[in-house]
Nucleic acid binder design. Sequence first.
DNA 1: TGTACATCAGTGAACGCGCGTTCACTGATGTAC
DNA 2: TGTACATCAGTGAACGCGCGTTCACTGATGTAC
Lengths: 211, 211
Amino acid sequence: MPSRPPPRAKASRQPKSYHHGNLRPALLAAAERELAEHGIEGFSLRGVAKRAGVSHAAPAHHFADATGLLTALAALGFERFVAAQKARQTKAATDGLSQLVAAGLGYIDFARAHPALFRLMFSSDRPDHGDRTLCASAEAAMAKLVDDVRGADPQADAAGTLADRAATAWALAHGLADLLVAGRLKMVLKRPAAEQQSSLAAILRQGLAPR
Amino acid sequence: MPSRPPPRAKASRQPKSYHHGNLRPALLAAAERELAEHGIEGFSLRGVAKRAGVSHAAPAHHFADATGLLTALAALGFERFVAAQKARQTKAATDGLSQLVAAGLGYIDFARAHPALFRLMFSSDRPDHGDRTLCASAEAAMAKLVDDVRGADPQADAAGTLADRAATAWALAHGLADLLVAGRLKMVLKRPAAEQQSSLAAILRQGLAPR
DNA sequence: TGTACATCAGTGAACGCGCGTTCACTGATGTAC
DNA sequence: TGTACATCAGTGAACGCGCGTTCACTGATGTAC
């Protein structure tokens, strides 16, 4: 008799099971797809449930309401946002300015790869921006930025210009990201992709270099 | 017999008239209030009609749908946006850099005074961004920016750096505006109002000065 | 190891709500004569 | 100047829709014995 097939791993797709077993993360993933396709304004809890292959009442067991789900999604977004910056930084030169520029490019990468999520995090009132988890994630991203600025300009701390330098760096990266996502900045967008990258890098390097 | 009261001016409020007479601009004004109070996500055509004191079917005679109304409102927003920049510029020193900094401060003024309208113009998919009028208004704002950059750095044109300099200026002002509206940039927001202004001016001047 | 039972994740029908849209209408205004 | 009429801005009832929420239920899972 041939040996039986090994028991399915827990993670693999059970054909039909009454209980989903892993619904919370599945809902977050579905919410992300819903957001990407319908935008924040067209986002609905029923749509998310449908995408997750689950009845529309199921999410209530994991999230109080749409705000709760969007808040969790935004918090998760901030973690991936920081990851996108780090991904650029590992490929960049190790001097402080190059690292800061790389963080800015990662900021822009994230926004362009996940425009609706980016807007959810920065330009929407739908998430609960007072939520503990969301605040913590957002503040971690913020703290990383300040660290990177400090690394690029070790004098700033003593000179008392760190806050202004951080604001400049943040605003420059954020402005580029937000305008690109909105399809503005035609002077950059009309160029081929590779040229866009070097142009953005030049703009950031120019704008972030210590004086 | 005492003389009769003079006939009411057309503009004054007729107590009850079947026809509104001036509904289109009244709807735009009502839409702006609706937007300010409910945000883009809570915006409804019925709410606007109610604010304008008119039946919910009336707007259809002036705007095809909510998109049409929001598109017209965004276009109007861009005109006021430019006006806010000019208002700052008339009070500023006349050298090119001061004028560019003033434009940036006006950019921020507008965003903070009309946050929901600002987001409608830059971070929402609800208006029809292909609309002729809206495009024209947005492009006029854009053209003004490039002019101001040229004024602040007359060398840029010949050096071929105008596009990058314009992108930098736009991104910096936009980033500051968007982050302030979102309640981020705590390092700026926690200061008293007057200090915020001088801090923003310093950040802009520092970031926009030619190298 | 087997049985009974508590727990709770997920179901699906039902609800009320506000939305945009439609449509026959009403009545104010402007124009032709 | 007065009358008839066309125009069209605004009305309000009706509609269908998708939404979030509720609730009695079903059935899988884990635990006590």
